[in-house]
Design a protein around this nucleic acid. Structure first.
Length: 555
RNA sequence: GCCCCCGUAGCUCAGUGGAUAGAGCAUAGGAUUCCUAAUCCUUGUGCGCAAGUUCGAUUCUUGCCGGGGGCACCA
């Protein structure tokens, strides 16, 4: 619809220029948008204001001249010049009614788009170390990453979702040490458990598991060997748990990428050698440094320490080089806000390896404040007292948790109140939206029982020209904007745009439901309304799907 | 000290270079013989402060103030 208005305005401008009413045929970038107030029309453009300088005329005058070249009739009922020079279009209901047919025909693909132009994009998220279970913060990152991936796909990008497994390096060794010490304690040895080991009870459980499977034979094994064994064993079990938690959270990945594989394949060494030969990596104080300062970082960063051990940065270099070699045009990393200091150094790698800075983006997800009944939960990873994602999902459910995580922009910290997430009323937004879906299903079932429709899922609207009630027209308009909201959400990488859209649509539907009966004695009107609500149902489902939330038939 | 995010209604947060800045919660009152009341309707107050860019700034820039998070040859 906005495109139609845009073309109308441009055509009128061209005509006005040809007839000499406007001095210039230049048409600067204009906006076509829905005004805040319905008294300002259905759609409005600032064309006259942005044209003021090229036309060398006051905006209102431009607008008035232009308007006389716009044809009234058909979809456009009235055009007005208002305020500083806005051109306001008042549209016929006929402009909006066909959207229902479009939804019913396109069904699950309604709202999709080709703005992505098949651009190959990778979204990497969660990527937590397999040294402990996922906690709440990972949950927010998982919900954001998964939804961003879904939304990008729907908007026409070629998306791959990936989890980077940090299965190498010091933390894994610490994991091995932690498990081994717990094992020795179980075997009756009197050993202090150091602070820098993982404190959680799950370490003890892992020790039990090893005892069960391997017996106590290897307690006397060589320390190095035992640590390596424990590390590998524990990491595998923990990763298994992570995968399970994510599956239960509705999060799926196209690929699980092992950090260790970068060492095993020699890619880390190769990346270091390559950058060395380009003098991007140099030696100082017996360590290897990357010249990240050449790319805006505050200081150069160590790649290999003077003790010969590679830092995590070394594998990050190899990994990000490798990502682009796989053919991605754009790489998006989802990180917790506490990692923001890493952006510059990874960006340095990307630019140093010949890519454009814009090809690498980081979604920084701010922290989650977990509350219960308004009171903060104490969380400390050090003491091993953290609330896991699994506990959250078990308590409030996948749908409520995901919807809550996506309810706000990830640029802001999020208060997550477990009690609110469990409530079954309007304080809990997930039910508000899901209820629309369930309510409509109920209506359609009733209509089917009364033989008004053959099937509760039909492909063609009927008597759409009867949809003229104020609430119906406003629903039609909202349905109409689904695609542009998907596109906005994709281009801005902001899933909460979809959240807001769904809340809006849900509110409009509930309002409509309370004021109008869908099934009435008027058969034609009933069929028109059934078509409309089926359209609403499908759009609600499509939107919820993008957020990874289910659309229940019954509640 | 430096870097990142945030500062909008009593609370939690949306939003926009433009015409009268929104929602939920909270408060108070009301709606169900009828498709699910997990719903709806009615009821007020606000863009942290100061300069700059602009025809126009809550939105962009800078500075300040306030909150959160980071600043290792740790991840």
């Amino acid at each position: 619809m906005k495109q139609i208005i845009r073309r109308t305005v441009l055509d009128a401008a061209k005509k006005a220029f040809e007839k000499g009413a406007l001095p210039s045929d230049q048409t600067p970038n204009m906006e076509v948008e829905e005004p805040r107030h319905s008294s300002h029309g259905d759609l409005s453009t600032n064309f006259a204001m942005v044209s003021a300088s090229v036309q060398k005329m006051p905006p209102r005058k431009i607008a008035e001249r232009l308007v006389s070249y716009i044809e009234i009739g058909g979809l456009i009922e009235k055009v007005e010049v208002a305020g500083p020079g806005f051109i306001n279009f008042f549209l016929s209901n006929k402009a909006w009614q066909p959207v229902v047919d479009e939804i019913l025909e396109q069904d699950k693909s309604y709202g999709n788009s080709d703005v992505g132009k098949k651009e190959k994009v990778q979204v990497e998220f969660v990527s937590s170390n397999p040294t402990g279970p996922l906690h709440v913060g990972h949950g927010r990152g998982a919900a954001v990453g998964d939804s961003v991936g879904n939304i990008l796909s729907f908007a026409g990008f070629d998306v791959q979702k990936e989890y980077y497994i940090n299965d190498s390096g010091r933390q894994i060794r610490t994991l091995g040490t932690s498990v081994r010490l717990r094992l020795l304690q179980k075997a009756g040895k009197n050993i202090d458990f150091p602070d820098d080991c993982y404190q959680g009870d799950y370490i003890k459980d892992l020790a039990d598991l090893i005892l069960e499977k391997e017996g106590d034979a290897f307690i006397n094994k060589d320390e190095k060997e035992a640590i390596a064994f424990c590390a590998k064993f524990a990491a595998e079990i923990i990763l298994q748990g992570i995968k399970e938690d994510l599956t239960n959270f509705g999060v799926t990945f196209d690929q699980w990428f092992s950090e260790q594989s970068l060492y095993d394949s020699g890619r880390v060494q190769k990346a270091i050698d390559d950058f060395k030969s380009k003098d991007m990596i140099y030696e100082k104080d017996e360590a290897l440094w990357f010249r990240t300062t050449d790319f805006g970082d505050e200081k150069d960063r160590v790649v290999v320490r003077n003790n010969g051990l590679a830092t995590y940065f070394a594998s990050d270099i190899a990994y990000h080089v490798e990502k682009f070699e796989r053919g991605f045009q754009r790489v998006i990393d989802v990180w917790g806000a506490d990692h923001h200091g890493y952006i510059k150094r990874i960006n340095a790698i990307v630019v140093a390896s010949g890519r454009k800075s814009e090809q690498f983006q980081v979604i920084l997800v701010q922290l989650v404040n977990l509350l219960r009944g308004g009171k903060p939960f104490q969380m400390s990873t050090r003491a091993g007292e953290f609330v896991t994602l699994k506990e959250i999902v078990d308590e409030v459910g996948k749908d409520a948790a995901r919807f809550m995580f996506l309810s706000r922009s990830y640029d802001s910290g999020l208060d997550f109140d477990l009690e609110v997430a469990k409530q079954k009323n309007s304080e809990n937004p997930v039910y508000y939206v899901q209820y629309v879906h369930a309510r409509i299903t109920g209506i359609l079932l009733k209509a089917k029982q009364e033989n008004l429709i053959q099937d509760i899922d039909f492909k063609k609207g009927e008597h759409l020209n009867l949809l003229n009630a104020e609430e119906e027209v406003s629903l039609l308009k909202i349905l109409h904007t689904f695609r542009e909201n998907v596109e906005k959400s994709a281009l801005e990488l902001h899933p909460h745009v979809i959240f807001n859209y769904l809340m809006n649509l849900a509110a409009a539907f509930h309002g409509y439901y309370n004021r109008h009966k869908v099934i009435t004695d008027d058969r034609e009107q009933t069929l028109a309304r059934l078509s409309l609500v089926l359209g609403v149902k499908k759009v609600i489902r499509n939107g919820l799907t993008l957020l990874g939330v289910s659309a229940p038939e019954r509640m």
